[in-house]
């Protein structure tokens, strides 16, 4: 009996499980290629998110100054386009609907509804879309460029954790940015609606703000902040993952940015649907105008 045969028969008898012999690898093997790669991608994103949170929570010091710097840089670089995109969208949104409500003669009643619906669905939405398109794409470019130039590998070789040094400050600053920028977004929504209501519906500002503030509750503001925070985590994770996994030269980086933005949008749309359904289902009385 040759050595190979002996080895094989011993394997048959004991069947020592190899690395890929378990049940889960076999199940994974049954999944077709398309879904498997997207599931693997989602898994990679969750793993990255876990690493970021673990790294930030275990040693919560040393990156705050850099986060602040990065926050400032992002804000200085992309404040103007973000403001233009958000303000333009909200202005247009309020124009269209205020015109319609004024035709129906319900401006004074309608604007409060409009504001609730507007900020719940669209302020949060446009903030997230613009942040992921402007700041998220820039983040993916930044990390992807480092990956392509092999700076990340160099850092790893030198014993520096790229996630700790590069990703954590950026992730924190982008999440905080998404959360905080919803507040000026809300203010812009209110002012845009008021301008539209006074221009098209001849509603006085006092009436508008009275009906607005009498039908708002703090819970809604908290909900917007929580929603934006979650969206910030989502965008950050997708953009960081795509940046860290960029590869394949120039087209690879362009494609990474493309995919980061597209995946952020898809994830954001689906997440918003789920969030609104759950939040409104839990607090249905929020739609009431008092």
């Amino acid at each position: 009996m040759s050595i190979e045969e002996e080895g094989r028969s011993r394997d048959d008898q004991r069947h020592a499980p190899g690395l890929y012999d378990g049940l889960s690898p076999r199940v994974v093997g049954l999944v077709p290629e398309g879904p498997r790669s997207s599931i693997a991608e989602i898994g990679g994103m969750l793993e990255l998110l876990g690493k970021i949170i673990w790294s930030a929570v275990r040693k919560p010091y040393g990156f705050w100054a850099e986060s602040l710097d990065y926050f400032f840089v992002t804000l200085r670089r992309s404040a103007l386009p973000m403001a233009a995109a958000i303000f333009g969208f909200l202005l247009f949104f309020s124009l269209v609907v205020v015109i319609f409500f004024s035709q129906a003669g319900a401006v004074s009643l309608g604007t409060a509804y409009l504001f609730q619906y507007g900020f719940r669905a669209f302020t949060v939405f446009v903030v997230a879309v613009v942040v992921s398109g402007v700041a998220g794409a820039a983040l993916t470019t930044d990390l992807g460029a480092r990956k392509i130039r092999e700076e990340l590998d160099a850092m790893t070789v030198m014993g520096i954790d790229p996630i700790r040094e590069l990703v954590v400050p950026r992730a924190i600053s982008l999440t905080v940015l998404t959360t905080l920028i919803s507040l000026p977004g809300l203010a812009v929504t209110a002012v845009g609606l008021q301008l539209g209501a006074s221009y098209y519906g001849h509603l006085s500002a006092a009436d508008f703000y009275h009906s607005l503030f009498s039908s708002l509750s703090p819970l809604e503001l908290y909900s917007v902040l929580i929603n934006c925070f979650m969206l910030g985590v989502l965008i950050t994770t997708v953009c960081c993952y795509k940046g860290l996994n960029a590869g394949g030269g120039s087209i690879g980086l362009g494609r990474a940015v493309n995919q980061a933005v597209v995946i952020s949008y898809v994830a954001l749309f689906v997440f918003q649907l789920a969030y609104n359904a759950i939040f409104l289902g839990l607090f249905p009385e929020l739609g009431r105008v008092r």
């Binding site: 233009a84 124009l95 794409a137 362009g254 493309n258």
Partner: peptide, 25 residues
């Protein structure tokens, strides 16, 4: 270089977002 492609992609997104909002108004 490759970094330029990534930056151009991000910049086109910025310009498009602003133009879409402007056009909407």
């Amino acid at each position: 270089g490759p970094v330029g492609v990534g930056q151009a992609t991000a910049r086109s997104m910025v310009v498009n977002l602003v133009l879409i909002s402007t056009l909407a108004v």
